[in-house]
Nucleic acid binder design. Structure first.
Lengths: 198, 198
DNA sequence: CTACGATGTCATCACTCGTTGACATCAAGC
DNA sequence: GCTTGATGTCAACGAGTGATGACATCGTAG
């Protein structure tokens, strides 16, 4: 962010700017990985989307896999810590994200088998930390039986619904208003994950 | 078909038997596609698993894609029509299948984006016919509101749980006894898909 | 102004994929 | 026994992939 040394207002064209190229690659990768997954996205596609030579992926990130990890890290970091009052809020957050830009690198990594085990484990851990554990802790303090299993089941179910909605599995699920769907899930999830009573 | 055994009059045993080779390829493809999906399975793998030269795939099926379609057709035909008394029975059936041999070609086709749209649509239709419609009809006769949406949501949720269990997303979900999980889902699904009262 | 490191461009490598066609080998009919 | 068609084997092709390194070009320190 040093002074580009040109007119104010309009960013100076940066034909040679490593940071900008790196960022462009990262953004393009984020979008493409999010929509198509790891294997189905080629480095040449990423380069074209970023208007950057694909060879720079190797230079700046080392490899396609490391670029993927970087994209996942960005997605993970962009999520601010959050506390869920009701289990269906997880569905709300997840579907809002998917409505915006596809499943995202993390979910892609979790549900596809063509990614490295290393990447998949990292994505799973993220999912557990952000979604399962909050639910589990609430139920633990409330003394609910089988808290962990209930939390995992709820997250998996929400993921299924969000996925089916995003990928257009069915006719109505994809088109229904998000909040209506969340409301529908709310009743159901309360039976699976009893809400904290405190 | 005709008795292949040792009688002199009958046809000799079949060291070179096109039908047997074809079937071996189909079986191997069914298993591999079921576990790894379409793109991640190579024709060389299939050939090795079937102990048949991969080139015969082209000869007997035309291409890898047509072999895939044949495998899906086999899975679709093997399912006998079934009626579900309670929504959680869908979970039972689905998880029993997955515990046996992975998600299966049909589910793989639905959830992965690397398959042909044609294949994916066929798989979706199969899913709707076998899972969504039975639920919907029960609720329609019971006069439940938003029957179709509820049915689709329930199937998607069950799919998510079954998938998460099969793919090892979480620590407990994968290991828990299937029937315990079904019981857990039963309460929850009743809220989403009110059981028929007749 | 010049030299040098940083940045971008390009051709190409090694590899895997699905597919193809030539060739080998077997079983059966004349 | 020899021919003929079916069946199996094999090497290779062309199209992709990710990755690599040589080279060109820019920006700027000296």
């Amino acid at each position: 962010m040093t002074d580009p040394a040109s007119q104010p207002g309009a960013h100076a064209p940066r034909p040679r700017n490593a940071a900008a190229s790196r960022q462009a690659l990262l953004d393009a990768a984020q979008g493409l990985f999010s929509q198509k997954g790891f294997e189905a996205t080629t480095v040449r596609e990423i380069g074209e989307a970023a208007s950057v030579d694909p060879a720079l992926i190797a230079r700046y990130f080392g490899s396609k896999a490391e670029l993927y990890i970087a994209a996942v890290a960005v997605e993970g970091a962009s999520e601010r810590p959050q506390r869920y009052e009701r289990p269906a809020q997880i569905a709300e957050v997840m579907m809002a994200r998917m409505d915006a830009g596809g499943p995202g690198p993390i979910l892609q990594a979790v549900l596809r088998s063509d990614t490295t085990k290393e990447i998949r484990d990292a994505a799973k851990a993220h999912l557990v930390r952000r979604m399962v554990q909050p639910l589990e802790e609430d139920m633990d303090t409330a003394g609910v039986d089988r808290a962990r299993l209930r939390a995992e089941t709820a997250v998996a179910a929400v993921l299924g619904v969000a996925l089916g909605r995003s990928l257009g599995w069915f006719s109505e699920l994809g088109g229904v208003d998000r909040h209506e769907l969340v409301a529908l899930l709310d009743e159901s999830l309360d039976a699976l994950v009893p809400p904290a009573l405190d």
